[in-house]
């Protein structure tokens, strides 16, 4: 099988995970205009919770649910306790706040779960599939990764575009004041937005943990690549986040494969700068012609 094909497959699965991370960041950005730098650390924490459950004899799928539901809850707590009080503070303060949370969680995790590097079990085999007598670099777990990210995205799309709740959430994010006048409980909508975003982040965590090993800072890189993907796509576009995340996956895979893995991040930087020089607000940003 050609090297290019292998790298592409690898880029697709990695990209799906970066896309999930990027989507989580974009959802929070759209809801509250905050870049949640703690998103990766939160996902790390929920992955640890899942591993903790597995260690205590809980079956994998239940642990998977533990990760997702603890993501929901953690997102709500963070929004309510930490982000809400600084709603109207300057944006930089909120940046520092999420950085503080990141450090705190990365220190808390080893205190609660032990400091040693752990491996995290995959849901399915990570051995490449066989087609006839040739093996491809695409494992059942890769398929699961792609499938679950896709499923979550479709569910979110339906939620936001087809339901009244989604309509309320979008309205609350676009214009909280007008939404309040329409009887929308904006606070709840924003909390829910953070919750759902953290769920998506938590999904990224359990999906990438098997290939990265689990330690307190294991999600930092995923956060950076997800953020780069989100910026690449244009921070206020969900489609952009997914495309940007996938692009990052492919680009990093090609750079790593052809030029050496220690140039991956340099490649990311070059791509990002190149795109931003042409489109300073990302690929999918909509330029406003009229005053909104």
């Amino acid at each position: 099988m050609s090297r290019f094909f292998v790298l592409s497959l690898n880029g697709l699965t990695q990209g799906a995970i970066y896309a999930a991370m990027a989507l989580a960041l974009v959802m929070i950005w759209r809801a509250t205009q905050v870049i949640n730098f703690a998103q990766g650390a939160m996902a790390m924490f929920t992955t640890y919770l899942a591993l903790f459950a597995i260690d205590h004899g809980v079956p994998y799928w239940l642990a998977f649910l533990v990760a997702l539901s603890s993501g929901l809850i953690l997102g709500a707590i963070v929004e309510r306790v930490i982000v809400r009080p600084v709603e109207s503070a300057p944006p930089l303060n909120v940046v520092i706040l999420t950085l503080g949370l990141l450090l705190f969680l990365e220190a808390l995790a080893p205190m609660l779960f032990g400091g040693q590097i752990r491996s995290f079990p995959p849901a399915f085999s990570i051995v490449g599939l066989h087609f006839g007598n040739s093996q491809v670099a695409f494992s059942p777990f890769d398929a699961f990764t792609l499938g679950s990210v896709l499923a979550v995205m479709v569910l979110l799309l339906v939620l936001f575009q087809k339901t009244d709740l989604g309509l309320r959430m979008r309205a609350a994010a676009f214009n909280p004041d007008v939404s309040r006048l329409l009887g929308i409980r904006v606070g709840r909508m924003l909390t829910l937005g953070w919750s759902l975003a953290s769920l998506v982040g938590a999904l990224a965590g359990v999906l990438i943990a098997p290939s990265l090993l689990l330690y307190p800072t294991f999600m930092d890189q995923v956060l950076v690549f997800g953020f780069t993907g989100a910026v690449l796509g244009g921070l206020d576009s969900a489609v952009g986040a997914v495309v940007g995340g996938l692009l990052m996956g492919f680009a990093l895979s090609y750079v790593g494969g052809y030029l050496g893995s220690d140039l991956e991040t340099v490649g990311a930087l070059v791509i990002l700068i190149a795109v931003l020089m042409v489109r300073p607000r990302g690929l999918f940003s909509r330029h406003r012609l009229r005053q909104a």
């Binding site: 953020f227 780069t228 989100a230 930087l269």
Partner: peptide
């Protein structure tokens, strides 16, 4: 966007 570029 600047934050993202400088972080990278």
């Amino acid at each position: 966007y600047l934050a993202g570029a400088t972080l990278t």
